[in-house]
């Protein structure tokens, strides 16, 4: 038999094999990563590049003309303000609706809770186009609500259709499931025992909420808020169908600039402005994901 002393050569096979596997792993993820790079990372830099670099006439040069045009145009600014306002109202409404809902879902153990969970998840399975159509038929002029009010001898509602409240109602409706889900997941960090111990110590439900639950889900609430802002700020379908034509929200505005006005550079400028405004929330969101993943491991 061969003599193998402990001071013999250190086997490098293990690490070499690991390197081989490393290459296989990289190869397997390469296509999605490339796609991600090409269609998410690159477009962002490309958009910034193409809006601040002038390629016309005498070679490349630095120019902020589209940005100047955007911020000196009253209509563009009105659109931006409308979008910010709608986003803020939606975020506030969503928290006001989903926080109680998620608190209930986290701590309720009755059979009704399953029904409530099902109902709160349901909008996730209603595509926004269908939702838009359904809302027009329900709260639009002479819609379902008007019919019922009329039958009861009450005056018609002031229809939110084609006002900023149209997209607000639609966006809130559409975002209830995900917001609730994320809040419930955040509430998972609060253990039953922590709550029971507080009640045992004599805390009333309100005190439990204020001193035990809210401090522990602060971060989750912020993540949910960022996520909501990111998805609502550049929403398109619901504002386009339900919202006012003028001023309009950034989504339809960008689409119209790109598709009808055919001013690609201006449309991309508008996109870069939405990136800039959402950057704070995006950065917070990414940081939070990174931290969660580190803690998870």
């Amino acid at each position: 038999m061969t003599d193998l002393s402990s001071t013999g050569p250190v086997r490098t096979g293990g690490t070499a094999r690991r390197n081989g596997r490393g290459l296989t792993g990289l190869l397997l993820v390469s296509v999605p990563v490339a796609l991600l790079g090409w269609l998410i990372i690159y477009p962002i830099f490309n958009a910034i590049g193409r809006t601040i670099l002038r390629t016309d006439g005498t070679g490349p040069g630095f120019s902020l003309d589209t940005y100047v045009r955007f911020f000196s145009d009253g209509y563009s600014l009105a659109n931006l303000w409308l979008t910010l306002w709608v986003t803020a109202v939606c975020a506030a409404l969503l928290l006001a609706i989903c926080l109680p809902l998620s608190l209930y879902l986290r701590f309720a153990k009755s059979r009704v809770a399953a029904v409530v969970q099902g109902l709160s998840l349901f909008p996730m399975f209603v595509p926004s186009v269908i939702l838009a159509y359904a809302l027009i038929r329900t709260i639009g002029p002479n819609g379902g609500v008007d019919l019922v009010l009329n039958a009861l001898g009450l005056p018609k509602i002031n229809s939110p259709y084609l006002t900023p409240w149209g997209p607000i109602i639609g966006l809130v409706w559409d975002n209830i499931p995900l917001t609730t889900l994320m809040l419930v997941a955040g509430l998972g960090a609060v253990s039953d025992n922590a709550v029971e111990a507080a009640r045992d110590a004599g805390a009333r439900p309100w005190a439990v909420l204020r001193h035990i639950i809210l401090p522990q889900i602060g971060n989750a609430v912020l993540v949910v808020l960022s996520f909501t802002v990111l998805s609502i700020f550049s929403a398109f379908t619901l504002p386009y169908v339900l919202g006012p034509a003028s001023p309009e929200m950034m989504g339809p505005f960008m689409q119209r600039t790109f598709g009808q006005v055919m001013d690609t550079r201006m449309a991309v400028t508008q996109a870069v402005i939405t990136f800039a405004i959402c950057a704070v929330f995006g950065a917070f969101y990414v940081r939070s994901i990174a931290r969660n993943r580190k803690n998870g491991r």
């Binding site: 991600l36 990111l230 550049s234 989504g251």
Partner: peptide, 23 residues
């Protein structure tokens, strides 16, 4: 790399679409 997939939510979607449309 994995984080970058999760982080793809961190961009306003329609703005991104317009940027891609430009390309």
């Amino acid at each position: 790399l994995f984080l970058s997939f999760l982080a793809s939510h961190a961009f306003p979607k329609f703005g991104l679409l317009v940027a891609i449309a430009g390309i």
